[in-house]
């Protein structure tokens, strides 16, 4: 599997990652190597195999009761925010 620069640009766009023009060929090369490497998975016979998403198949993930367990800590949490005005997270204008 070989990825082109434009493939990498498309993936980077999907992943919301800025990649510089100089980095494009570097990622095209290393991502192609990784995809070629993982192609050996095709050697495994999996026609009748179930996919595994969780390492402890027998253990069901629990649901918790729909009850309030957290207290309001907005100010504490917002101390990590890049930009807050009047208790609101501020981002560039979204709707023109």
């Amino acid at each position: 599997m070989s990825l082109t620069r434009s493939d990498v640009e498309a993936i980077a766009r999907l992943a919301r990652l800025e990649i510089t023009a100089a980095e494009l060929p570097v990622y095209a090369d290393s991502l192609s190597k990784i995809l070629s490497f993982v192609e050996q998975l095709n050697s495994a016979q999996t026609a009748s195999t179930e996919p595994m998403a969780h390492p402890l198949a027998g253990e069901l993930q629990r649901l918790r009761p729909d009850a309030v367990t957290e207290t309001d800590q907005r100010e504490k949490f917002q101390r990590n925010a890049p930009l807050v005005v009047a208790g609101l997270y501020v981002v560039p204008k979204v709707i023109e």
């Binding site: 993936i11 990622y27 990784i34 993982v38 998975l41 495994a44 999996t46 996919p51 595994m52």
Partner: peptide, 26 residues
């Protein structure tokens, strides 16, 4: 992130991600 984005993207999900999950079972 880009490897993951690619293997989860439409058209490649079965070939990479689902296949890997099956090999994980093996």
């Amino acid at each position: 992130i880009m490897t993951g984005t690619y293997v989860l993207s439409a058209g490649y999900f079965d070939a990479y991600y689902l296949k890997a999950q099956k090999v994980r079972t093996l």
